[in-house]
C-alpha cells in the first residue's frame, strides 16, 4: 500500500475510496485557480464493475493498492461461475456476472493464458491476451465482387455464440484473430 496524490494518478492505478478498490481508467489534470488544480478521474469499481466519473483536488491523497495477478487458463463453467486454474492446479471461481463482456471470449478447451486479478485473495477479474484465435461457427457466404476486405458481415464464434463483424471473405470453420481490447476482428489465420 502506498499514498499517491490525485494529481499523480495514472490509468491502471488502483486507489481506495471509502474502502473500495477503484481502478483508474483515465485521469485528466487541469489547473483551476490560484495555482490549484483538479483531476477528473474515470474509474472502475473493481468489486462491482461499475464505472464512475469523479473529480478531486489535485492534492487529495489516496491509498494505492497493488493487486496480485496470476497466469491461469480457463477450465469450465458450473453455470454460476467461470473456473480458472493456475499452474499449480489451484482453482479460482469468478462469478459469471463479474465477467461481463469478457465471457464472450471463453470457449471449451481454450489454451489462452489469462491474467486473473485478486483483491484480498478474491479473484475479481480476468484479462485476456490482446490477441486471441477463435473459430467461426457460422457466417453467410460472401457476396461476389469486393475482395478488398473492407466489406464486413456478421459471423458467430464457436462455443460462445458471440456475434462479431468479419471481412466478407471469412468462411465457416475459418480461424480468425480477434483484438480483445477493441473486440474487433483483426485477420484470418492462414
Amino acid at each position: 500500500m502506498s499514498i499517491r496524490l490525485a494529481g499523480d494518478l495514472r490509468s491502471g492505478n488502483v486507489m481506495m475510496v471509502n474502502n473500495e478498490p477503484m481502478q483508474v481508467v483515465k485521469a485528466v489534470y487541469n489547473k483551476s485557480g490560484r495555482n490549484a488544480a483538479v483531476v477528473k478521474v474515470k474509474a472502475k469499481q473493481l468489486l462491482t464493475g461499475r464505472v464512475t466519473e469523479n473529480v478531486y483536488k489535485a492534492d487529495e491523497k489516496f491509498e494505492i493498492v497493488m493487486l496480485e495477478k496470476k497466469d491461469c487458463t480457463y477450465s469450465y463453467s458450473d453455470g454460476n461461475n467461470y473456473v480458472f486454474v493456475d499452474g499449480e492446479y489451484n482453482q479460482y471461481e469468478i462469478p459469471c456476472e463479474d465477467m461481463a463482456d469478457q465471457a464472450r471470449w471463453l470457449c471449451e478447451g481454450m489454451t489462452d493464458v489469462c491474467e486473473v486479478t485478486f483483491y484480498n485473495e478474491t479473484p475479481i477479474g480476468v484479462e485476456f491476451p490482446q490477441t486471441i484465435v477463435r473459430e467461426i461457427a457460422y457466417t453467410e457466404p460472401a457476396a461476389r465482387g469486393d475482395t478488398s476486405g473492407k466489406v464486413t458481415k456478421s459471423a458467430i464464434l464457436k462455443d460462445s455464440k458471440y456475434e462479431i463483424q468479419v471481412s466478407a471473405f471469412v468462411e465457416i470453420g475459418d480461424k480468425i484473430e480477434i483484438d480483445t481490447v477493441t473486440g474487433e476482428f483483426k485477420k484470418r489465420c492462414t
Binding site: M15, V17, N18, N54, V55, E60, F62, E63
Partner: peptide, 16 residues
C-alpha cells in the same frame, strides 16, 4: 474542461 467537471461528485477517500 470546466463543463465536464461541473456538478461531479468527489467521494471522500476515507469516509462515506
Amino acid at each position: 474542461w470546466v463543463e465536464g467537471c461541473h456538478q461531479l461528485a468527489s467521494p471522500r477517500p476515507q469516509s462515506s
